[in-house]
Design a protein around this nucleic acid. Structure first.
Lengths: 350, 350
DNA sequence: TTGTAAGCGTTATCAG
DNA sequence: CTGATAACGCTTACAA
């Protein structure tokens, strides 16, 4: 008895049996006293009170592992993102966490850094840790997702921004968004509109690029490969791409940038070359991150509801976890984007 | 036997017993075959091979909960930050995750939003989920941390940026940093140096403020309360504070801002009022986030090694988890900061 | 209202 | 080299 109390290195973690012994009741009674729902009935109030007190006195903390093992649910969800440092995903994650934690779920965050290997590794460990659900945001669309393992282990899956998988998803109409921002420039009279894109393996980037192309087509503008540059989604990429574009024989009068960080880089490059925005050339961003309206000129961009993407995705997952019908099929929620016109875009010079 | 295979809702998750039955061996043998270290010995290679194959055929995934329950370790660490959207913490978290995942640990991320209640709730659930260790970054220094629960449950704790707790920690010398950036301005000849601070309950912000004060003292400059403004760490705060400062009867010629986002806001405010930086007034930031060198003028700021803070903290935690001596006391690592002089600071106008 | 005991899926100990 | 079996800490029928 007393031997149980000290074993190994000093103190032992206190278990439900310790509480039971100390309170002079059975473990079942302790369990009942502590379980939230059977709060008032199924147990005598005084007993309950007594157990609560001894439990507190001993500093008892129930072991969720044991509970989860028994109940076959962990109350944990896994969240996989390409890069948490990307403001887009930061917003999404915040949204997810807020609704998940509200519903009593913990969140395991995984960064893939866009490496397929890391994605696979994370999927593996998430299954092993028996998370109740997984939220997969973004990532290379070329590496197909294998959701079979998850269904095998009753793990619900919701994806953000992928189209290639048969599970609930929340998406942006990135094609329309890319078209809209390009059309904004075309509508202002620009005829040479360049694009600073992101990595080609991302579905999001491909869609925005396609939107750009279709808008060009719709406005009867030629599609020139030399006007399309690839970037790495950071400021430096935008800086270099814009620098190159500005030294072309016939430079573009408009630059569509596929995220705000690259747009800020582009703005800096143009500034450094004495090319005024928007008088000489217009620049647009994408995402509408917090600093977009604090750079000068204020950035014309496309606002995307990152936080809402997160909350929506989490709600989709929660409803799947509740076993609600129709949550297994490919329920798709498409969230709206909006062109936000500020000061970095204007008609081209005469 | 066969009954075991389908119960409840369609398929059951496959367990080690299923593999054992299918392979015609005992569960112990399966366990041995799958355990990494006893790879080649203690078991006949053919047996091992056979088990591996049936395991793969059945799509078996070991249940980490059961393992954790038995071994008293989860291979999970909890990470608590005030706000993951803050670039500072994003960097820290990336650092943590990289070394943690390398060492085979998963990470549970918790956002407190600087609300003490949420912090408490998270600490509670982290103990219950029996994470092996907890990393606590930032947060209100006024609400003391109760580490006792953790030691009771053998949970190692490492803090980032707090001084009030007896466990390993990694810190920045924020006092020195605040003093250094202020001294930079003072050295340039500025005599009216304003401060745009952050929330007063953060230790980091208090230290930087103290550094500002001491630098003023060291340079024999008066400390004027009217020159100190509080912000919320976002662009808008900086914008408004700088706007107010610029309309004072005797406006400051230098503005020290306690993070880069507020500095960008300040730059915008000054720009909008036609006050040129750095000719009329100098502005400095703090943190050196990615866009700091892409705003114009480029921001003079203090670079802090966020990523390294994260890796260092994680390593501290890992060594504590390995039970290395001396990792329980208050081992403190102080990381260096550096004033990065760019274009937003210059001597005051004559 | 309370207690007893089975079992969740592993690993480790101890025999064979 | 392999097989029983006892834990790990908890919840939940079922009995008392």
């Amino acid at each position: 008895m007393a031997e149980r109390s000290r074993r190994r290195q000093g103190q032992r973690t206190v278990s439900i049996r310790d509480v039971a012994e100390a309170a002079g009741v059975s473990v079942a009674t302790v369990s009942r006293a502590l379980s939230a729902d059977s709060a008032s009935f199924q147990i005598r109030p005084e007993t309950r009170q007594h157990v609560l007190e001894t439990s507190a006195a001993l500093g008892y903390r129930p072991n969720d592992l044991a509970r989860a093992l028994l109940q076959q649910r962990t109350s944990v969800i896994g969240v996989i993102v390409p890069d948490i440092a990307n403001p887009f995903y930061t917003g999404v994650v915040r949204g997810i966490e807020d609704v998940a934690s509200e519903a009593g779920y913990r969140m395991v965050l995984c960064n893939t850094d866009r490496e397929p290997d890391r994605l696979d590794k994370y999927l593996e460990t998430l299954v092993s840790s028996r998370v109740d659900g997984v939220l997969i945001a973004g990532g290379a669309a070329d590496t197909p997702l294998d959701v079979d393992v998850f269904t095998r282990y009753h793990t619900k899956v919701v994806v953000v921004g992928r189209h290639d998988v048969a599970c609930p998803s929340v998406q942006l109409d990135n094609v329309a968004a890319g078209a809209a921002i390009t059309a904004h420039l075309a509508g202002l009279g620009h005829r040479r509109i360049a694009l600073i894109a992101g990595p080609g393996d991302s579905r999001t980037m491909r869609d925005r690029l396609e939107g750009y192309r279709s808008a060009l087509r719709a406005h009867g503008l030629p599609q020139l490969d030399e006007l399309i540059r690839r970037g790495e989604l950071d400021e430096d990429s935008g800086y270099r791409a814009a620098g190159e574009l500005s030294t072309m024989d016939v430079p573009p009068t408009g630059i569509v940038t596929l995220n705000d960080r690259m747009a800020v880089g582009a703005l800096a490059a143009l500034h450094d070359r004495g090319i005024s925005v928007p008088q000489k050339v217009s620049v647009t961003g994408f995402d509408d991150v917090s600093f977009a309206s604090y750079v000068r000129p204020k950035l014309t961009t496309v606002s995307v509801p990152t936080y809402r993407i997160g909350t929506t995705a989490a709600e989709l997952l929660l409803s799947a976890l509740r076993g609600e019908p129709d949550s297994d099929g490919g329920k798709r929620v498409v969230l709206p984007t909006e062109v936000v016109i500020r000061d970095s875009s204007a008609p081209p010079p005469a």
